[in-house]
């Protein structure tokens, strides 16, 4: 069974079609990357899966369960999203404790205290940060809180939208290591959106390259490392990336 199956997904804003008949399968336990330039529609695919872009057509199913277009409480416990900028995605007036407890309260789950402590330990946040506000944390700590929040309902699929591009390289390394460890420990599947190919190389198994709303190539990360991508545009993207990032 696939963790995530997307078939012929199209999303339009008004007359502009930003995602055009995209199909993706993320196998259970796999880490899959969507790469492309800004405006290629890669983030919109994530938003459609998360329920933040309701005007889509096609089929989306998560662990075999089709996703409805409205607010889907059952989906929330199967898949969660982590956003690019932790400062923008955390409530500025809520403590870490409140942020982490809220999903449990919404879903009527008990044992909040133990669960909050457990998840904070899992993402490597010290206990003393529990009653702090987002502005009292560093960028890396904030992103840890955002990841912890996404994990509160024990989803098996994480949608990651540029989770490290707002962070320093040294902090990026910590968060990437954390994501890799959590995937191993909790058997998670990832759908990662990024334009940073080295991050894909570190964290993912397969990738799809998007351009103007369409997928131009789906291949293994191994092919990316060996320079065996087949599509001309994919190769162009890799070349441009090699000019400005590490070799």
């Amino acid at each position: 069974m696939n963790a995530l199956q997307i078939r012929n997904l199209s999303v339009s804003y008004g007359d502009t079609r930003v995602v055009d008949t995209v199909s993706i399968n993320v196998v259970r336990g796999e880490s899959f990357a969507l790469v492309g330039e800004s405006g290629s529609g890669k983030s919109t695919v994530l938003k459609a899966v998360a329920g933040l872009a309701p005007q889509w057509t096609g089929e989306i199913s998560v662990f075999g369960q089709p996703r409805s277009k409205g607010i889907d409480r059952a989906f929330a416990s199967r898949g969660q999203m982590v956003f690019q900028d932790p400062y923008g995605s955390l409530h500025p007036r809520q403590t870490v404790d409140a942020t982490l407890s809220e999903p449990l309260a919404i879903h009527g789950l008990g044992g909040q205290d133990a669960r909050v402590q457990e998840i904070m330990a899992a993402v490597g946040l010290d206990r003393r940060f529990r009653f702090r506000l987002p502005h009292q944390l560093s960028g890396g700590q904030r992103q840890r809180v955002a990841i912890a929040r996404a994990l509160m309902l024990e989803p098996k699929l994480l949608l990651l939208d540029e989770p490290t591009s707002a962070l320093d390289v040294s902090v990026q390394a910590e968060i990437l290591n954390l994501l890799k460890r959590l995937r191993r420990e909790k058997g998670l599947s990832y759908l990662l959106v990024t334009h940073d190919l080295p991050v894909v190389s570190f964290l993912c198994d397969r990738l799809a390259v998007m351009r103007e709303g369409k997928i131009v190539e789906t291949n293994t990360v191994d092919a990316l490392k060996r320079g065996r991508m087949t599509n001309d545009y994919s190769r162009e993207l890799i070349e441009k990336s090699a000019l400005t990032t590490s070799a």
Partner: peptide, 11 residues
């Protein structure tokens, strides 16, 4: 700490 395009390190 920077990941490389041809990344082989596990961590």
């Amino acid at each position: 700490s920077v990941p490389r395009l041809n990344e082989t390190r596990a961590e």
